[in-house]
Amino acid sequence: HSHMSHTQVIELERKFSHQKYLSAPERAHLAKNLKLTETQVKIWFQNRRYKTKRKQLSSEL
C-alpha cells in the first residue's frame, strides 16, 4: 500500500469535485501528472465515491 502525498490528494480531490467518474484516458493522464499508477487513481476514486455515498445515506437518516 503506497502513501499519497498531501499534494496528490489535493489534486485528486479537485478533480473529483468536477467529475466523479474518469474515463480511462483521463485516468491515465491524471496518474501521469501526479506520478501515481492508474490503479491508484482508480481505487482512490472508487473509495471516494463510496465515502460520498455513505455520507449522503447517513445524512438522510
Score class of each variant (00 low, 15 high):
Q40T: 05
N47Y: 14
E13V: 07
F16T: 02
R54G: 11
E60C: 15
Q46V: 08
Q8V: 09
S58M: 10
H6S: 08
P25A: 15
K32M: 10
F16G: 02
L30W: 00
L12M: 03
L57I: 11
T37A: 03
K20Q: 12
L12A: 01
Q56N: 11
A31K: 00
E38G: 02
K42N: 07
M4W: 04
H18Y: 12
L22S: 00
H3D: 08
T52V: 12
R49M: 04
L34Y: 00
E26Q: 06
Q8R: 04
S58V: 12
W44E: 01
E11R: 05
F16L: 02
Q40R: 03
K32Q: 09
T7H: 12
S2L: 13
Y50D: 08
H3G: 08
H29S: 13
S59H: 09
N47M: 15
T39A: 12
A24T: 06
K42C: 12
M4V: 05
W44T: 00
Q56T: 06
H29K: 14
R27Y: 10
L34F: 02
R27N: 04
Y21P: 01
T37P: 03
Q46F: 08
Q56W: 11
L61T: 15
L12R: 01
H18V: 12
L36A: 01
Y21D: 03
H29E: 15
S2G: 13
E38W: 04
S23R: 04
E26V: 04
S2D: 10
I43C: 13
A24N: 07
Q19I: 06
S58L: 14
I43D: 07
A28P: 00
K42R: 15
A28F: 06
A24P: 10
Y50P: 03
Q8F: 03
K53I: 10
L12D: 01
L22F: 02
T52C: 15
L36Y: 03
S59A: 12
R14L: 08
L34N: 00
K51Q: 14
F45D: 00
Q40F: 06
S23H: 02
K20S: 07
R14W: 05
K20V: 06
K55N: 13
A24G: 10
K42A: 11
L30S: 00
V9E: 09
N47L: 12
S5T: 13
K15A: 15
N47P: 00
